[in-house]
Design a protein around this nucleic acid. Structure first.
Length: 899
DNA sequence: CAAGGGTACTCGGTTCGTTCCGG
DNA sequence: CCCGGAACGAACCGAGTACCCTT
């Protein structure tokens, strides 16, 4: 086991040793900071993690490392002791082998007992690691058979059976085994039919047949065009039908356990393809880019790139970015070279050599004018335009998936433009080219009519891949990334996979204790690879780090757990770790946390010289290796499942421990606070809005205004009863000017109040006049305004009077009493309190994005349960689209459901 | 495996358009 | 009742994860 550094690939400069000796370990005990630049001072209150803390809750912080979330749960699951038959084995192995691939043979031992008939209906995981081919085959067959049998037993037998036939008729038979074949033939003999035919009546899910009357079908979209609308059929549905919760029409797939665990995603699929962006319209003759102050003309293809740049001049952030400029200009010049150079007004060739000499302002002005014109359009016109667009696109919005109408998510092909990218992306500014039909692959049912490509064009390919959920696909020219047209979030298929995701996370609950126990043990392994792996799992579990795939040179320089580098982790003895790196989307991950002493030691070890900046901390670990290890515990367990699990688990605990008190608004606020904790755990950040500071000040101002009002009411009490008596009763402080306010502030505030009142009166006056004028009546005279202004004048006078009397405030209102004033003070108290909460809420939310965790990480059933238990309408938590997306959750759980 | 390309899917913040709300 | 801006929601499209297959 040689460990020479030179047999490593070039990019890895320094690597850890294969094994860790006692001496190595001991060396790590010496508490020397491995990194000089630690910013001391902030320490975090966080329970130390010990080996005993196996089901320790998530703890995490964010920015500034100031706050920490720490959740108590400490619940343990007894039921997993018998399900973790792989663990002891692992430990055994490790003790007598020093090789780093100690997990490979394991899998064989782990797998077999998994598949039982009982599980078939429940388990939804179908990804079996490689090297399991045979096993996989067998499992597949068994599952399939069981499913088949089950499906047949279902009440909607005919329908299901039919699908099966189609499925098998279409699929290449390579995994068909006797059992299935038997069924298949039987079915085929019974009622095989050409698919097209089925559309008459019997393709409709059985349930629908019951009413029998209105199973009519209709061509979607503008019939007259007749081009691309040929095949997509849909039911005729009246608008109110949509709302009328028609039990019979709905497909409750989440109750349909027999389906959804194969890899075949559909049996029939019909759709109309994609919508292309409008062709580029060359600029009007008088709008030209200037080169060296001279207007130049170029071919539309080149002009389109200039146009893209010119129309974003207002985005200084991009336009002034050197990389952006460089990339843009390179692509621009290339296109000029390709299409013929720019010409001046006399037709002379102008060679464009310097971006600095290009003046895009005329283009920008033109675009800007067009934008404003569009904005200024009368509402009616806008509506009309929108209606036209909607009609054109109607045919593309839906598809027929296994006979059910489903919404398509992104049916529009992405328009050309300048690529932005996130963070310091090396390719920012490059021109993202127009996608042609020739680049687009269509995925569609064999029997369905293939959408017609635009005239004179053809598709790259037409596939009938039932294992894919996409309808169309192309490759983008910047990163070579694949772009897919898939169904919308509220579709059955997306719902199913969402459901599967959360069920998988819930399953992790059963294994988490074992996993935690194991990694705590393996933190001490003398095999470097194992120890690194254990440490990584620890970080992923505790701090919700992402897996951290390797990335290429041509991508933004961001990392996750496995790709953390030397400089991203700073150690501050005794056991504080400071993470500071750019994660996904170049979002900064900054956190100071206390970790298990052994983890601290390990990180120190993994950072040991000769490693230095740029070297990977987990040099013996890849995401696939890590995931492979995890999948030993549970089928389909990967690093990202921990994020889902921890997020939902955190939310579950927060909601469970919540008290059902207060108003609906209070409950919503409390829910949002929990949501926020999860968002912070997942490091979901957003940039602070430019207006945030001003908004906060405004709110503070409003609060101060209310406090001043309170002060005035209290002063009025003194006007009603003997001050000395009152003061004795309430205390001097009760009547003092609120903290933070002083004479100067009061003077200003009063001035502002008066001014405000005047403003309001004036505005109202003017508006009324306008109205009168519009109606052809006589306008009011200036005198009327003056009269109205008296209110403000009086106010001003009152303030003056008070000032003269040394601040004494006379009681106002009809029949003022101390009691009435006091009631007023109390009312203000509540208003102030709510405002304060709002303000705090806003402040703590300024850089946290709640949406992502709500949409992707928090099991929606938790929210549904909360909504039911606390009697808050679900609308307060889920928007319309979210309610559609989480339809399955809303309809499937009762109050007692637990994550 | 390893390394690397290929593919398909989820996750993610920003932008843009609409609605809501206080004055 | 209207207006302006803030809040909200949907659209957009970029960036990850994960796993496959090949050499």
């Amino acid at each position: 086991m040689s460990d020479s550094e030179d047999d490593r690939p070039l990019k890895a400069k320094a690597k850890s040793k294969d094994t860790i000796s006692k001496a190595d370990d001991a060396a790590m005990d010496k508490q020397i900071p491995t990194n000089g630049h630690v910013n001391p001072g902030i320490s975090i209150a966080m329970g130390p993690v010990t080996d005993m803390d196996v089901d320790k809750p998530i703890t995490n912080g964010h920015t500034n490392g100031k706050r920490k979330v720490s959740l108590a749960n400490g619940k343990s699951y007894k039921d997993d002791s018998d399900s973790d038959d792989d663990v002891p084995l692992q430990k055994k192995r490790k003790t007598n082998t020093a090789s780093s691939d100690d997990d490979v043979p394991l899998k064989k031992i782990v797998k077999p007992p998994k598949v039982t008939a009982a599980m078939v209906g429940e388990e939804s995981d179908d990804d079996v690691p490689i090297g399991q081919k045979l096993q996989q085959e067998k499992e597949k067959i068994e599952k399939k058979a069981a499913n088949e049998a089950k499906a047949l037993r279902r009440k909607d037998k005919t329908n299901d059976a039919k699908r099966k036939i189609k499925k098998q008729a279409d699929s290449d038979d390579d995994d068909d085994k006797p059992l299935i074949k038997k069924q298949k033939t039987a079915l085929l003999n019974k009622e095989a039919k050409p698919i097209k035919k089925e559309e008459s009546d019997d393709d409709v899910p059985l349930k629908k047949k019951a009413p029998a009357k209105k199973v009519k079908k209709e061509v979607v979209g503008p019939v007259k065009k007749g081009k691309t609308t040929g095949t997509v059929k849909q039911e005729e549905k009246s608008a109110d039908d949509e709302e009328a919760e028609d039990e019979e029409e709905e497909y409750r797939w989440w109750e349909d356990q027999a389906k959804g665990d194969g890899t075949v995603k559909w049996n029939t699929l019909e759709h109309n393809g994609v919508v292309f962006p409008p062709e580029y319209e060359p600029l009007p003759k008088h709008v030209k880019m200037l080169y060296d102050k001279m207007p130049v003309t170029m071919k539309p293809d080149a002009e389109e790139i200039a146009y893209a740049f010119g129309s974003m001049l207002s985005s200084a952030h991009n336009v002034e970015n050197p990389t952006f400029r460089k990339n843009f200009f390179a692509d621009f010049k290339d296109m000029l070279d390709e299409t013929g150079h720019a010409k001046d007004k006399d037709g002379n060739t102008i060679k464009i050599k310097q971006l600095e000499k290009c003046d895009f302002q005329p283009i920008f002005d033109h675009v800007d004018a067009e934008r404003s014109a569009k904005k200024a359009l009368p509402a009616a016109d806008k509506k009309k335009l929108k209606a036209e667009k909607d009609e054109k696109e109607a045919a593309f919005m839906y598809c027929m998936w296994d006979g059910r109408k489903q919404k398509v998510g992104n049916f529009r092909v992405e328009p050309p433009g300048l690529f932005r990218g996130r963070g310091e992306h090396p390719k920012t500014g490059k021109f993202k080219k127009r996608v042609t039909p020739e680049q687009i692959t269509i995925n569609i049912g064999k029997e369905a009519m293939v959408p017609k490509p635009p005239d004179g064009h053809s598709w790259k390919e037409v596939k009938h891949d039932k294992e894919g959920t996409w309808l169309a696909m192309w490759q983008e020219n910047i990163n070579g990334a694949y772009k897919y047209v898939m169904l919308a979030a509220n579709s059955d298929i997306k719902g199913k996979s969402d459901f599967k995701k959360f069920e998988k996370a819930r399953e992790l609950k059963k294994h988490i204790d074992t996993i935690r126990k194991d990694y705590h043990q393996e933190l001490r392994s003398d095999v470097m690879a194992t120890r690194q792996r254990a440490t990584a799992v620890y970080l992923i579990d505790q701090f919700a780090l992402r897996a951290g795939n390797e990335k290429g040179e041509e991508e933004a320089d961001t990392v996750g757990c496995c790709s953390l580098k030397f400089e991203h982790v700073t150690l501050r003895p005794p056991e504080t770790v400071i993470f500071d790196f750019l994660g996904k989307d170049s979002i900064r991950f900054y956190d100071e946390v206390k970790v298990d002493a052994q983890v601290f030691k390990n990180l120190k070890l993994f950072k040991r010289a000769p490693k230095t900046e740029g070297d990977e901390i987990f040099d013996r670990l890849t995401t696939s290796g890590l995931n492979k290890h995890l999948s030993n515990y549970m089928q389909g367990l990967t690093a990202k499942v921990f994020r889902t699990y921890n997020a939902s688990w955190t939310m579950a605990n927060l909601l469970r421990d919540m008290k059902a008190e207060g108003t609906v608004a209070n409950k919503v606020l409390a829910y949002n606070a929990a949501n926020r904790k999860v968002a912070i755990l997942c490091n979901h950040k957003r940039t602070v809005a430019a207006t945030h500071g001003a908004q906060m000040e405004k709110m503070e101002g409003r609060i101060d205004g209310l406090r001043y009002q309170q002060y005035r009411l209290k002063q009025q009490m003194l006007d009603l009863e003997t001050p000395a008596k009152l003061k004795k009763k309430r205390g001097e402080a009760y009547f003092a000017l609120p903290e933070g306010l002083d004479e100067e502030w009061v003077a200003k505030h009063q001035e502002a109040l008066v001014e405000e009142t005047r403003d309001k009166i004036r505005k109202k006056f003017e508006k009324e006049n306008e109205k009168l004028a519009a109606e052809g009546q006589k306008e009011m005279k200036g005198k009327e305004l003056e009269e109205r202004m008296e209110v403000a004048d009086e106010m001003e006078a009152k303030f003056k009077r008070e000032h003269k009397k040394g601040g004494k405030i006379e009681a106002e209102g009809k029949g003022p009493t101390v009691e009435k004033l006091e009631a007023g003070v109390e009312k203000l108290d509540t208003r102030i309190a709510t405002l304060k909460i709002q303000s705090e809420d806003r402040e703590s939310n300024k850089e946290v994005a709640l949406g992502t965790s709500k949409i992707n990480y928090i099991d929606p059933r938790l929210t549904v349960v909360f909504s039911k238990k606390f009697d808050v309408p679900i609308e307060r938590f889920f928007s319309k689209t979210l309610r559609e997306k989480f339809d399955w959750a809303i309809k499937s759980v009762e109050e007692d459901w637990e994550f």
